[in-house]
Computed example of a mutant assay.
Amino acid sequence: MENIYPKISVVIPSFNQGSFIEETILSIINQKYPNLELIIIDALSTDSTLKIIKKYFNKINYFVSEKDNGQAHALNKGFKMASGQICSYLNSDDTYIDNILWKIAEQYKKNKFKWIYTDVLFGNSIKNSTYFERRISSFEEFCAIQTIAQQGVFWENNSLKKPWFDENLMYVMDHKFFINLYKNFGKPNYLNITGAFFRIHGNSKTSKFEKILFDERKKIGLEYAELSDNKYQKNKIKLEIKRLDLKIKMHKTYSDMLACKKLTIKIKFFLEMLIIFIKSPFKKRDLFFFGYLKKSIKLLVM
């Protein structure tokens, strides 16, 4: 039966996620996919992580617990060992949705994709989650902001030369890798199902280091703009980065307004948002800015 289904290699980079990693592992092995390669790269966890991992040693193809130089380094170590035709990775606090590995394999058998993505749930629990349904954008916009969730992305093992992940990046190494896939193979295939759950909690990297994440994303976007020989593409990427900057400012100002109780200060924040909206070159085609203005007006009249 293993020969019928393509081998899928899943890497779990792990560090001190004892509260969640068992759920992550079970979401993979309970699918009972017959040709699975499970690789766990731990960075010397000091909580209950290692004890939990040992419970599933007979289901894990490769495991190491040693000091590393960050998540990108852990991923590169893991995928160096990967021998599957299809690859993916799952952070040690996220989970796959039932049967996703089977469905990805079916798609690969029908059409040997270079990369593919699904919709993803995100939240603090599956019961209290929201759909992440953003579709793939133009290459220029994708350089500025990642419009698909990493947990739902799968790719062919021989797609690009390894190592895949930039170890100088702390938070958006996946985004840069996906940009490289897009640049070399175009838009990914889209599978219209929910493939994974992206957990947001107080200790998750996305929650704690949002500003650094956006700064890194802006940096790699500008790098691709400078590398482009196409003047239109270069300018379009820079324009999309400007759009991202304005979105971040709008979001931060609204968050400050939401936390404020004094009406006079709320009005001040509202005027700041209005100025951002007026100066934005995107308001005619992007409802994001108008949506925040509408929400801020509601705050003023509450």
Rank of each mutant, 00 (worst) to 15 (best):
H175V: 02
Y131G: 04
F122H: 13
E156A: 11
L169R: 09
A196S: 15
K183W: 08
F178Y: 13
F198H: 15
G152R: 05
I148N: 04
Y182Q: 04
A196R: 04
I136A: 12
W115M: 08
T130F: 14
S125N: 09
N111W: 00
D119Q: 12
Q150A: 13
N124Y: 08
D174Q: 02
F154H: 02
D119N: 15
F165L: 06
K112G: 05
Y182A: 02
Q151L: 00
V120N: 03
L121H: 11
K187N: 14
G195M: 06
W155E: 03
N180Q: 15
G123F: 06
T118R: 10
F165P: 02
M173F: 13
T118L: 12
L169F: 10
A196M: 06
S159K: 05
P163T: 01
W164T: 03
V172T: 15
K187D: 12
L160C: 10
E133Y: 02
T118I: 09
Q146E: 14
Y171K: 09
G123P: 08
N124I: 09
G195V: 08
G152H: 02
M173T: 05
F185M: 01
N111H: 12
N189W: 01
H175L: 14
Y190L: 06
S125Q: 09
F139C: 05
I200E: 10
H175E: 06
K183Q: 14
H175W: 14
N189C: 09
L160N: 11
F113P: 01
I145E: 14
N124M: 06
L191C: 00
K183I: 01
S138E: 11
T147D: 10
E140Q: 11
F132G: 10
Q151P: 03
I136D: 02
R134I: 03
M173K: 07
F113E: 01
N158M: 07
M173S: 08
S137A: 14
A196F: 06
F177N: 08
G123I: 08
V153Q: 03
K114E: 13
L191W: 00
E140G: 01
I136C: 13
K112W: 02
D174I: 04
Y131N: 11
N168H: 12
R135A: 04
G195T: 03
K162R: 14
N180C: 12
L160F: 10
N189R: 04
I116W: 03
F132P: 04
T130G: 00
F185E: 04
A149I: 10
K161R: 03
K127H: 07
N180L: 14
E133I: 09
I136W: 14
F132W: 15
E133T: 12
H175Y: 09
E156V: 00
N180P: 02
N189D: 15
K176T: 05
E167H: 07
I179L: 07
S138Y: 07
V153I: 15
K112A: 12
W164D: 01
A196V: 08
I179R: 12
I116Y: 00
Y131T: 12
V120W: 05
Q146R: 12
K127E: 15
N128C: 04
I179H: 11
N184H: 12
Y182C: 05
A196Q: 07
I116L: 15
D119W: 09
W115H: 13
R199N: 10
P188W: 07
I126R: 14
K187E: 14
I116A: 03
I179N: 06
R134P: 00
G186S: 08
